[in-house]
């Protein structure tokens, strides 16, 4: 059942990728709601797959690395859809959809039996902490997408080679304003994620903070985004802000994967 949902999600992600890229390639427009509709279908199927797996495992399915990747992809799609409701930035789907294809496919390929959690981690804090932290990351993912599109549009305008298709991208001001707003949201969510983690750690391990790779890198990420937000508020904007947003997100993804694969601590996969 879970596999069927995941396959369905992958197919929809692929279709929505095509639909989001279509206006960049062809002068003939598609129905405006087609691409977001496909992405929405993918999101529902993907969420269904995660729900089925979580129910059968008895806890939220974000314990294995690939589970976490899959969960992140699903949230990214969801946040991207939410943002599209608020601003004319459908083009973000052209960045998010292919990322989701990769993440959902990864989950599909590396899928294994779910492992039992140590009893110490069975807690209502698990879904709260994990969802907030991942939601924050997904929001940063959208900021990253907006920045990528910003740089693309900016280069088109600077180099003056703007073909017709690129003139349909959202305006720089729209992308820059979106980037700023989204960063603030992501930062708030990440902060809550870290705080709930600390509270939970106090319950489980009797201390608010353990200096382990995962939480430490979260803190590094948090400081990085705090600095980025600070500079944005101080008046940084445009290309520099976009480039920094991209750099921050790359560090975030890198540290996430690095921790999962290289230094698993008590936090996360190895449950020491």
């Amino acid at each position: 059942m879970e596999i069927v949902f995941l396959q369905l999600a992958i197919v929809f992600y692929l279709l929505s990728t095509g639909a989001f890229f279509w206006p960049l390639m062809s002068p003939r427009p598609l129905a405006r709601s087609l691409a977001p509709g496909l992405l929405c279908g993918a999101f529902v199927a993907h969420a269904g797959a995660i729900a089925v797996r979580s129910l059968s495992a008895g806890h939220i399915a974000v314990v294995e690395s690939y589970e976490a990747v899959s969960f992140f992809g699903c949230l990214l799609a969801g946040v991207c859809l939410l943002v599209q409701l608020r601003a004319p930035v459908a083009i973000l789907g052209a960045v998010v959809s292919p990322l989701c294809v990769v993440m959902a496919t990864g989950a599909f390929v590396f899928s294994t039996q779910s492992r039992d959690l140590p009893p110490s981690l069975h807690s209502v804090w698990l879904p709260i902490h994990v969802t907030l932290a991942f939601l924050g990351n997904a929001v940063f993912g959208v900021a990253f997408s907006a920045s990528l599109v910003y740089l693309l549009q900016e280069r088109q305008l600077k180099s003056k080679k703007g073909r017709l298709s690129f003139r349909r991208l959202p305006s720089l001001e729209t992308l820059d304003a979106l980037n700023y707003r989204v960063l603030a949201w992501g930062f708030a969510l990440l902060t809550l994620g870290i705080l709930t983690g600390a509270v939970w750690a106090e319950y489980v391990w009797g201390t608010f903070w353990v200096w382990e790779p995962r939480p430490t890198l979260s803190l590094v990420t948090w400081v990085m985004y705090a600095l980025l937000l600070h500079y944005r508020t101080a008046g940084w904007r445009g290309r520099r802000a976009a480039a920094l947003t991209i750099a921050c997100f790359i560090v975030l993804v890198g540290s996430f994967l690095g921790v999962k694969l290289i230094f698993p601590g008590r936090h996360g996969g190895a449950f020491g």
Binding site: L157, R167, L169, S171, L172, E173, T174
Partner: peptide, 10 residues
């Protein structure tokens, strides 16, 4: 004007 719209939102 088109270019101005690619740079500015409103």
């Amino acid at each position: 004007v088109d270019l101005a719209r690619s740079i500015f939102d409103h």
